[in-house]
Simulated scan of single mutants.
Amino acid sequence: MARVVVALGGNALLRRGEPVSASTQRDNIRRAAKALAQLMGEGHQLVITHGNGPQVGLLALQGEAAGKGAFPLDVLGAETEGMIGYVLQQELDNAYAGPAQFATLLTQVEVDPGDAAFRTPRKPVGPVYTEGDARRLAEQRGWAIARDGDAWRRVVASPRPVRILEIDVIRLLVDQGVTVICAGGGGIPVAQRPDGSFVGVEAVIDKDHASGLLAAELKADAFLMLTDVPAVFTDWGAPAQRALGDVTPQDLAALDFAAGSMGPKVQAACDFVNRTGDMAGIGALEDASAILACQAGTRVVPALSR
């Protein structure tokens, strides 16, 4: 039995251009749960994380539209972690035929308040806009904005995760055979005060970096990042684009990837492999089983196991 940390990308739960509605999200989560149930049926022990960028942005907009102002990002992160975790836990329970226990855990993740990411927001959240609408909203609401593919989105600070505060609780549940859903959206960002207490911070942690840290702390045998593309590509979007199969962190270090999309996944995969010597996979949700079997996706492996 392999212990596998599976990170579900935001695009795997809500495809680009789809409405951020409860029914649409449940339909996509149901599809994800079926793929995860297949992995469990093959004997793998899963720990599951997920993205939350579209959901955080929508809740912020809803708060502003109600005239009450948006809650801070750490609170919105906690809300979406509970919301998505609830639906995912329920759909997993429905999809998996065997005996299993599932638990969703709100997870605080410590960040460094001096992280340079607070000076250069880059993490996309919320819906996509035309450039004109994005610039108008940025002026009205004091947002930072950036291009995201063919559209524009709000961007916020995304500091690196330093420590998972609930790691001992997660480890305890996993050791008891519970399938844990945790660190959703990268976890709830918190910082430690000089007196040792913790406080939430205005940021969204990258889910892939937090998931990679989680996988390493749990001594996972594999770390999967599942999204809406079948692999990591060189020259993405160009006629010469090429899917990567087995690659090493050294191979990937010589290539450039978009900071707002594939870049964090590639870096998180390399960090996990360099730290543990185990495999990290990136690919499509429906190929999860094949990625573990080295038959699909991009597999980042140590140089000696190539």
Rank of each mutant, 00 (worst) to 15 (best):
F198N: 03
E202Y: 03
I181M: 11
I164T: 02
A296E: 06
F71H: 15
R3T: 12
G9V: 05
Q62R: 12
R122Y: 10
A183L: 01
G277F: 13
A231S: 12
P249I: 07
G283P: 04
A222L: 10
A97G: 15
A146Y: 01
V47P: 00
A116Y: 11
G277S: 13
F71Q: 15
G67N: 09
D256R: 14
V201L: 06
S305R: 15
T104N: 04
D175R: 13
V109F: 01
P127N: 11
W143S: 03
G85F: 05
A296H: 07
A288W: 01
L255I: 10
L255M: 15
T248G: 13
M40H: 04
A296V: 04
Q89T: 15
V87T: 13
P239T: 10
G17L: 09
Q45E: 12
P159W: 02
I205T: 00
R15F: 11
G9E: 03
T227V: 08
R193Y: 03
D112A: 03
M40L: 11
Q108M: 07
G187M: 10
L14S: 04
T227L: 05
A12V: 08
L46G: 01
L172W: 04
E110A: 08
E91R: 14
R153E: 07
R31Q: 13
Q241K: 10
A303F: 15
A222K: 02
I145N: 00
C182M: 00
R122S: 14
D208T: 06
C270A: 14
Q25I: 14
M279C: 14
I205D: 02
L304C: 14
L36K: 01
A134P: 05
L61T: 06
G187K: 05
P161D: 05
P159K: 00
E166V: 07
I282R: 06
P113L: 01
S197M: 03
G67C: 07
D195T: 11
A259Q: 12
D27I: 14
G196Q: 02
A220I: 08
A191T: 13
A243N: 04
R15P: 08
G51M: 07
A288Q: 03
I291Y: 00
S211N: 10
R242H: 13
G184I: 00
D221V: 11
V232D: 06
V87P: 06
A240Y: 06
A238C: 09
R306G: 15
R136Y: 12
R171M: 00
I188G: 07
V247Q: 11
D206E: 12
E91L: 12
F233N: 06
I145M: 05
S261Q: 03
A70Y: 08
V162C: 10
D133V: 12
G69A: 10
G41N: 07
K265Q: 08
V178P: 07
C294S: 14
G63C: 08
K265D: 04
R147Q: 12
I167Q: 06
R30D: 14
L165G: 05
L218G: 05
V20A: 14
L292F: 01
A203F: 08
T49R: 01
L14N: 01
L8E: 11
D74L: 11
L218I: 10
I188Q: 03
E139T: 11
Q250T: 15
L226D: 04
